[in-house]
Design a protein around this nucleic acid. Sequence first.
DNA 1: CGGTATCCCCCGCGATACTG
DNA 2: CAGTATCGCGGGGGATACCG
Lengths: 226, 226
Amino acid sequence: MSAFGQFCPIALASEVLTQKWMLLIVRELNAGSRRFNDIRRGVPRISGTLLKQRLDQLELAGALIKKPLDNGAGDEYLLTDAGRELKIVLGAIGEWGQIWARDITPEDLDPGWLVWAMHRRIDTSQMPAGRTVLEIEFSDAPKTQRFFWLVCEEDSVDVCVKPPGFESDLIVKTEIKTLAEVWRGIRPLKTELTSGRIKLSGNENIKKQFPNWLLFSIFAKFKKQT
Amino acid sequence: MSAFGQFCPIALASEVLTQKWMLLIVRELNAGSRRFNDIRRGVPRISGTLLKQRLDQLELAGALIKKPLDNGAGDEYLLTDAGRELKIVLGAIGEWGQIWARDITPEDLDPGWLVWAMHRRIDTSQMPAGRTVLEIEFSDAPKTQRFFWLVCEEDSVDVCVKPPGFESDLIVKTEIKTLAEVWRGIRPLKTELTSGRIKLSGNENIKKQFPNWLLFSIFAKFKKQT
DNA sequence: CGGTATCCCCCGCGATACTG
DNA sequence: CAGTATCGCGGGGGATACCG
């Protein structure tokens, strides 16, 4: 994006931040992604070419630095102080979006993205020691986007789109929209569980613990206005 | 801008807010502009067609409402609650821009915009009763952008690009960059006055009072990092 | 003054194919 | 996996002219 012909700090910041996809990339970086394809999982509709361009522009703007990976394949992308400070901007925009932005359409309901977002907000300290495997089935999704697995350990949560080779400790079955609205804080999880719109399969103790594991969206606490 | 294919509130808000010129328009509205050409003076490089489009999009997004003017010519544009809440977003982005954004180039130094920005931040309560006329001359500007007048009364400050017909009470002569950097909080006004890089002509009392009238940019208090 | 209508150019961006 | 290179189109947006 070219310049706006004025030296207002909002205009200068806009040159970088209002480019297409840019804020979503910064969101991923601030959420902890450092590798090219990790960022991409949080911004699935961006092309590889463009993602690379945007990362270069962020580097030019001083918001991140590239660090070559040991194995020689690609770089690691690390936020600078400037990049980390963007968390405040993201917070302000996200809060506004949660309260005032348009309603969601079916187009927005990407199940893969939902699982990717959720995997960053799992409270593994509430889980049993060792490995816990969560299987999620979206009953209304096409085959390729129907099943996901969250492989949780104390210090990591991995997302799989194929069976991870471990038995699932808990199976969560729901429609996409239901879980999406629970994630957003629009519906309480408990209601959806008792109504059966979210169905759990697993041993009783695990099922009972499940609600303690989900931390939901960081914007869930803000309630939408009409 | 089309959708991003995810229901993250940052993505939803971005659809509206990251369109070209959009944040600057919202800035003007939040600064108090309600009329088409007032907004345009704060965003001089936007075309009329596009400004109208953007205002319509803001209305669709629920951030403003149009109200027909009495005389039948055009509308008044009024922010809604949603639009006013964007002040928080503007504050976050402006603060980031002030601290971390790129340096200014000569391209950014639009004298007309500087005067327009200044006119919103004049403390008229510090001025003598009645009318005070400030004349600003940018010694390094081309003829058409060299002279400006601020006609200040208790409850209004008007910007003129031609002599307003009243005698000037104070003439301020400076290079554009000097006043721009004072406005941004990069240089202290006093230093520029004593050095003579900003020259004042007028009666002694008025000259002495002048520094009390300028409130500077709302982001001037944040200091640029390198 | 506050728009609308039209034209047209450029470039942003998606898609695809190829490399190490 | 993490890119680079190339092509091609679509439409965003600038310029200009016109209206009430």
